[in-house]
Amino acid sequence: MQYLKYLLFGILFGVILVKAEMISWFRIQEMFRLQSFHMYGIIGSAVAVGMLSVWLIRRFNIKTIHGETVVIPDKKFNKGQIYGGLLFGLGWAMTGACPGPLFAQAGTGAAAVGVTILGAIAGTWLYGRFREKLPH
């Protein structure tokens, strides 16, 4: 069962998201009103640990458990990161959730979040449908 580890990592992430109140609509409102350091502390320390890990992996050429070289695809710049980023930011402050937290919110039993998830799937579909017409 090669997927079991991803299930376990997901469970761990879901528990953290709930217990650190990162999926709380109230915490997101505080973040965007600069009323709390909490979310900045979480994202900042997560990035610091992630950065150090990636540096160590590259510096010592640490292989995966299957002995492969670690590959991190490059993100290429396009205007979508600005326009799309702004649109996502608007939605983030409305729903109090980015994509990961949406799944965690639904897991806590907030059934109506299913509507938000359906909205996000529809939004993704619309992007795919009109992708050619959008500035990139």
Binding site: K75, N78, G80, Q81, Y83, G84, G85, L86, L87, F88, G89, L90, G91, W92, M94, T95, A97, C98, P99, L102, V115, T116, I117, L118, G119, A120, I121, A122, G123, T124, W125, L126, Y127, G128, L134
Partner: peptide, 14 residues
């Protein structure tokens, strides 16, 4: 509305 923005925006932003 919020969900649509999250889905559309994240994919647009990659």
């Amino acid at each position: 509305g919020g969900g649509l923005l999250v889905g559309f925006g994240t994919r647009y932003a990659g």
